[in-house]
């Protein structure tokens, strides 16, 4: 059994302060993020949860350095984030994998600086880790959605980043594959011990995966509540505590218990 979040080293990895984002549109300005503050500890798995269009992807893009915020700061290990960095790899939905490279080529993409033998060793290791053995020479268009996603995760992991940012990575997959992939992701997280920020609109998903769930409001997004999920892994999806936590978030968002 894996220990719960509190007993992880308490070092602060990511610190967000006063983060706001306003998009200047055709007709008017759109205020997407409103004065957000968040701390993420090293090795934590944090889910950012909110309805579609609330700005959670925008938040993740800002944290990853792809977008400059209108106001506020994002600091990682004390340093201000100025742009994207190979120490923090962003995993998009399956479209992120490069269609012109094989699985091997994709996974090895960030490993240009290594010697060939070292690169091959690493690629083989991560192919194995994500369960794509046998498909090294396949092109993405020959793979299923779940396999493409695994390839992208492997590509991210291969460069040994400190942090992984995942933006609704399982959104395009069927629900069965999604469950499998969640399990895989947790397994990888426990092996590699990365700090993970995971954006989703799926309440169940967030409670199944995260140490803490950051619940965002609708646009302009504010943090409604941060829910600690102290359940140990592997999580029993029918345990009372799981259901309590899940329902708690349902209520927070104002959703009914019955349809």
């Amino acid at each position: 059994m894996i220990p719960a979040a509190e007993s992880l080293p308490g070092r602060s990895k990511l610190a967000i302060r006063g983060l706001s984002m306003t998009f200047r549109g055709e007709l008017d300005d759109v205020r997407v993020l409103e004065d957000l503050a968040l701390d993420v500890r090293e090795g934590e798995f944090v889910c950012i949860l909110g309805p579609s269009g609330c700005g959670k992807s925008t938040l993740l893009n800002i944290v990853a350095g792809f977008l400059p915020p209108t106001a506020g700061s994002v600091r990682i290990d004390g340093e201000e984030v100025r742009g994207p960095d190979p120490r923090r790899i962003f995993v998009f939905q399956e479209r992120g994998v490069f269609p012109w490279l094989t699985v091997e080529g994709n996974i090895g993409f960030g490993l240009g600086r290594l010697s060939r033998t070292e690169r091959e060793r690493r690629v083989a290791h991560y192919v194995q880790l994500v369960g794509l053995k046998g498909f090294e020479k396949a092109y993405p268009h020959e793979l299923s959605g779940g396999m493409k996603q695994r390839a992208e995760v492997a590509r991210a992991l291969a460069v040994d980043p400190d942090m992984l940012y995942l933006d609704e990575p399982f959104g395009a997959l069927d629900s069965i594959t999604r469950l499998v992939m969640r399990g895989e992701l947790l397994r990888i997280w426990q092996t590699e011990k990365k700090t993970i920020l995971f954006v989703t609109h799926d309440i169940e998903e967030s409670v199944q995966l995260a140490d803490r769930v950051v619940v965002l409001s609708a646009r302009p997004a504010r943090i409604r509540r941060i829910v600690e999920i102290e359940l140990p892994h592997p999580r029993d999806l029918s345990s009372r505590r799981y259901l309590e936590l899940r329902d708690g978030i349902f209520e927070e968002i104002g959703l009914a218990h019955r349809i």
């Binding site: 190979p86 790899i89 962003f90 998009f92 479209r95 490069f98 460069v159």
Partner: peptide
């Protein structure tokens, strides 16, 4: 070329010239 590919290139720390060679050229082919 999908902005996702640009961003992925930048994410992996590629310099603009490398992005041109390793992302842009294959993607537009």
């Amino acid at each position: 070329v999908s902005s996702i590919h640009w961003n992925a290139g930048r994410n992996f720390g590629l310099a603009p010239r490398q992005i041109a060679r390793r992302v842009l050229l294959p993607a537009i082919l």
